[in-house]
Amino acid sequence: MTATVLRVEQLSAAYQKNIVLRNVNFQVQAGSLTGIVGPNGAGKSTLIKTLLNIHPALSGTVTFFGSPLKKVKKRIGYVPQRSSVDWDFPASALDVVMMGLYGKIGWLKRPKKQHRELAFKALKKVGMAHYAGRQIQQLSGGQQQRVFLARALVQEADLYFMDEPLAGVDARTERAIMDILDELKKQGKTVMVVHHDLQTVTDYFDHVLFLNRTVITHGKTEDVFTEENIRKTYGGSLRLKGVTGDHVFRLVKQ
């Protein structure tokens, strides 16, 4: 029996008067690697932001490691969508990774040599050591995503939320990121990833959370990743074609 690291009860959230999430309930076990899938506008990013109180919840309770968010913020890492920030910002890759340590460094204190070393180690881990001093605007999309991942690693969190870390990255970066996620899992950490490519779900994730305004279903990939559940989640917006093997789907957008 593994520990429950995240418990979500009756969560709902809205943008202005549009309710985006309603009645969301699920629990996540320690050491799991979960893919969050669903169509555009299903509320995947909003779910993560609401869990982390970056977006206000209308109702519901969220418990991390049996405590409210405030007490355990340092044990949680967040990787926002790459497109959510302005990469023209005057900073180097190392600067950005160090931002992951700002919470630990604390108010009124400056980053020290040890923080720089930690950040550099994290960059090395994602294969970006050579780019530490590079201005972030000059990095490719895949490299920027690796910098974001390094920034999360440096937090040494126990639970990670990542918003589309594989969106628009090259194949090598995708492989590198997945290797790191697998390693995190082996260390007993818990990772939740918003994912958009249904073809790779069975290869990458041991759990799947189908989301479309609410949780359609959530469980082990081998149990819940079925054509029926995909249909239920995506509705008529896509056609499933060429079902080969157990759970491999080729998707054609209509």
Partner: peptide, 19 residues
Amino acid sequence: FYKEWKVTTFDPGLAASLG
């Protein structure tokens, strides 16, 4: 608050998640 200005300007989402 140099580093706080830096992170809230560059990535408010991360800043919020850091508290």
